[in-house]
Computed example of a mutant assay.
Amino acid sequence: MSVRSVLGRRALQAVCVLAVGALALAGCSNSEDSGPAVQKVGGIEKVDSIAAQLPDKIKQSGKLVVGVNVPYQPNEYKDPSGKIVGYDVDLMDAVAATLGVKAEYLESAFEKIIPTIQAGTYDVGMSSITDTKEREEQVDFATYFNVRTQWAQQKGKPIDPDNACGKRVAVQATTIQDTDELPDKSKKCVAEGKPAIDIKSFEEQSAATNALVLGQVDGMAADLPVTVYAIQKSDGKIEKSGAAYGAALYGWATPKGSPLAGVLQKAVQSLIDNGKYLEIAKNWGVEEGALTKSVVNGATS
């Protein structure tokens, strides 16, 4: 979620930005969203050699208990029926099928996911969690996506991500864009004698997107799949600004020292090798961040 920061993701926000004649996006801070029309990828068969390595608890129950925080479109969010859906969900479902089990999704506050994994309540944490060295001290990760930052601007109103001094830029609170990237860019502006970036933090990504659509900010910075999704939902009102930059890995969190991270990594790699992984990524329009190799604990910082 953005590259989710170590501080956590977000609190739910009830306040919605409204304007006469303007479009409110993504349910206007509502976790329910009709989303794109995405068809499930079929034909995924159990791989016995990988499934045999599952911890006994999961073999016996026949399910993976997955803690997830929503909304974070398009990775994980609720459809109008209240079902948790998204790119992460489709990929985890495919992994579960590879392992011959079912994924059971339990909604959680983001900051509670890792402690609940440590307590043994969740088998897996799946919430666009960035694999970091600090987090690897608490849990292990099976990596599944390369995430970068992508800026957006209003249609025809350019903003340069490398020279946004004095501009108003929307971000979701506590994301890496909010806590690290934009503050660093702003400090560079000030050091060069230019005005600081006016960073506008919102509790939910949908509110940040709304602010850009309504012209209340000049630009927006978020994780690449999140920005692409926001553009798709904007009816042409916003567009990409500059190229995506940076690199980090999303990972599924598992108990420290458990064999589960390695099992999930092998299942993801199996889906990469048989083409199902890329098919799922393309269905959601996030293939730009697709991996060719999944690893356990791939953080570099």
Rank of each mutant, 00 (worst) to 15 (best):
P71R: 13
Y250K: 05
A244F: 07
L214S: 14
G100M: 05
S61M: 01
V286P: 00
D131V: 04
F202C: 09
K185S: 08
P36T: 05
A51T: 10
V20W: 05
T174H: 10
K187G: 06
S29G: 07
Y105L: 13
V171R: 01
L12A: 12
S258L: 12
A22R: 15
V85G: 00
G257M: 10
A94M: 11
L23Y: 02
A37D: 12
P255N: 08
Y250E: 06
N30H: 11
S127F: 12
L54W: 08
G67I: 05
V268C: 03
N283C: 01
S49D: 14
A222L: 13
V296W: 06
C189V: 07
D223S: 15
D79Q: 10
M126G: 02
F202D: 01
S127N: 09
S258M: 11
I280A: 11
Q150C: 09
G219K: 04
Y277T: 08
L12C: 03
N146I: 07
W252D: 03
Y277W: 13
E203N: 15
D235C: 00
V213K: 00
K83F: 02
A14Q: 13
I238P: 00
G35W: 03
N297W: 04
T149G: 10
Y229R: 10
N30I: 02
G120Q: 11
Q216N: 14
A170L: 08
D184T: 14
A191M: 15
F145P: 01
L25F: 08
G82V: 02
G215N: 08
P183Y: 03
D33T: 01
P161E: 01
D131R: 00
M1Q: 07
D123V: 08
W252F: 15
K188Y: 06
G275C: 04
T254E: 06
A253F: 00
S128Y: 11
Q177W: 03
K266S: 15
Y229K: 09
V65C: 03
M126T: 01
G35Y: 04
A52K: 15
C28R: 04
S81M: 00
Q205A: 12
D131L: 02
Y72S: 14
A14C: 12
P55R: 02
K155C: 00
A152V: 02
K133F: 04
L260M: 10
I280G: 14
D235Y: 08
P158C: 12
K293Y: 02
E279P: 00
G285Q: 02
G125Y: 07
K282C: 03
P255S: 13
N146R: 14
T130C: 05
I44E: 05
V17H: 12
K187S: 11
V65W: 02
A281S: 15
A152W: 04
K46T: 15
L214C: 14
S294E: 05
C165E: 03
